[in-house]
Design a protein around this nucleic acid. Structure first.
Lengths: 191, 191
DNA sequence: AAGGGCACTTAACCTAGATTAAGAAATTAT
DNA sequence: ATAATTTCTTAATCTAGGTTAAGTGCCCTT
């Protein structure tokens, strides 16, 4: 299991004291599958780091159709960035897909940490930049690739997720209906 | 015209000396429309801030179809974040659409600035976070809205751009062909 | 001022993926 | 175990948006 400190150490070096301070501002909790950590309409007051298990963020259209924004498994960060930084009610739900242990950082604590350990500004800058790059790529993929190509890309990028999460969520992530996804999968298997 | 210093001042306060230092690490240049500042396959060594005029970033599929990632006009930042942070050849072109004045920061200079003015880590963190949020929103819009709804959203978000940039680029940005865009526009005008 | 590209429009036809519906398989709960 | 609920599959039908093609108008350039 990759710890949150190892995750930070990938980009900035914290002293033992800083590490301790950092951990003191976090809270680690277990959650059962199906738990909703955050609902649309609420203000996101925390950011989440996944120690183990799987989470997803998604929104709901017209009270019917879900769209998966993100999956997060071991070693990933997840949250509702819009609500978190704006302080306004968000559109995202955050759900546990597989029993998970999650490190929680409140916005208050994160602000304090920025004051006390300025290096963390760099860390979260790099995190945001990397996330931005992958969103840009996904956006361009959605504009230029077919559903089949997006699925293949998803498989090579997140090979472990395919076995673990219901395929309707993967369909939603790549932007097709579950029915079409099923048809497409059958077609690919014949090849 | 909004200066780059005012843009920074929105999020962090620099002292006069810091402001001077910052400007000394930048270069401001005029560019004629149609100039290509960066091509796919090149490594992006700079980030760009637009003083005036309009730029766009886009990629090209199979040597044929362009997809617009971004427009940038007065007061916006633009570049190829993937190539810039990875140091690898990128997929994006950066083109001037309307005669422009652009502030250029090289990666080297930006790294030095991070050392000398740590507050800039915060500024660029906030910049990346905001950009991330708008990419997430655009991604979800592409998954859940019709072309017509995306167009309406584009109009209310970037009212000035509609008059100024060729509509085929706007079609590309919202993710439809120029022909369909034209048809859709005619349909909307009838209402 | 003339001509050569672009940018835009229109229209006929086409297709990837959506929708609807019904049944089968797999999980979950009791 | 068994019932209940979800998830997945299959198939028929439909549509938003793509493709192809032809024509119009409008900047640019010289």
């Amino acid at each position: 299991m990759q710890s949150i400190l190892e995750n930070i150490a990938k980009h900035v070096a914290l002293t033992p004291q800083e590490q301790e301070l950092f951990l003191s501002k976090t809270e680690t909790k277990p959650f059962k599958a199906k738990t909703i950590l955050l609902s649309a309409g609420e203000v996101a007051t925390c950011t989440y780091f996944v120690n183990s298990g799987i989470l997803r963020s998604f929104n709901i259209n017209d009270n019917i159709i879900e769209h998966v924004l993100h999956f997060a498994c071991e070693g990933w960060w997840i949250g509702d960035m819009y609500s978190y930084i704006s302080g306004k009610p968000g559109n995202l739900f955050l759900e546990v897909l597989e029993d998970a242990e999650v490190v929680i950082i409140t916005k208050e604590n994160q602000q304090q940490l920025y004051q006390e350990i300025p290096k963390l500004e760099r860390f979260f800058r790099i995190l945001a930049e990397n996330s931005l790059v992958s969103h840009q790529e996904r956006l361009m993929d959605n504009l230029s690739l077919t559903a089949e190509e997006r699925f293949e890309k998803f498989c090579s990028k997140y090979p472990t997720l395919i076995q673990k999460v219901p395929q309707k969520h993967i369909a939603s992530y790549i932007g097709v209906t579950p029915e079409f996804f099923s048809k497409m999968k059958a077609r690919l298997l014949k090849k």
